[in-house]
Amino acid sequence: MTSIAVPPSAPEHTGSRLTRVLGAATAVSWVVWLTYGLVLSPADVVQSESVRLFYLHVPLALSAYLGFTVTLVGSILVLRKNSAFWDQMAGAGAEVGLVLAGLVLVTGALWGRPTWGTYWVWDPRITATTLLFLVYLGYLVVRRLDLDAEVRARRAAVFGIVAFINVPITRYSVQIWNSLHQEATLSLTDTEMDGSQLTSFALGAIAMALFTTWLIIHRFRVGWLEYELDRSGLESAILERRGERTATEVV
């Protein structure tokens, strides 16, 4: 973390070699995923074409969990090390995760209508996902409260740790309660899915995770720049006062 002193030729964007490599991998994986999932793979015997929403909906959910996990790890490190770096990382994970979780709800509704027969019903997993969305929305609002930066970071970190309880609740809601959602299709012992469909889903999960990682890094850097801008604003204000004092002393 300390080795990243920036040379005079610092870039005027949030890209780097890391994001370019990740970005290229994301682009390739998305082309493969979408070609296979939308064109080459066959429709489902029961669900017909709507099964293709599975290849989007579930990878979105898994990647949302990935974002919230970044928030959890970042929050723990904020409390342990008082780290501004991890505070920004936690914020980036939550914001990206929130966008993905919103799309989980939208794609779920669009999958529910043709298969279940309704866009929305208060099924345990839909309810849990809605709560997940609202809780992380609340987390992002806490990050914008008008408080001293360190106090705010610590409060957000506590929130970011407690909020994570919702992730396993959502994940296992179909096992805990009677749900309209099918139970996990994929398991180590007994996977109830044909090869081409499994491939489409796996490609989607990989493609979405690569994209999410790429996006969180960019979003982290935006957050870091905001943090630096805030800090340099504060420092220039202090310098200004110091300047005033020197001026009065001279007079």
């Binding site: 066959p42 015997v45 029961v46 027969g117 139970e183 299709t185 044909d194």
Partner: peptide, 19 residues
């Protein structure tokens, strides 16, 4: 209201032919 609870089993159309 009737909600169709499709099972967790998926089966591709014409998977045999693909195989």
């Amino acid at each position: 209201q009737i909600l169709v609870k499709h099972s967790e089993t998926y089966e591709a159309e014409n998977q045999d032919r693909l195989d």
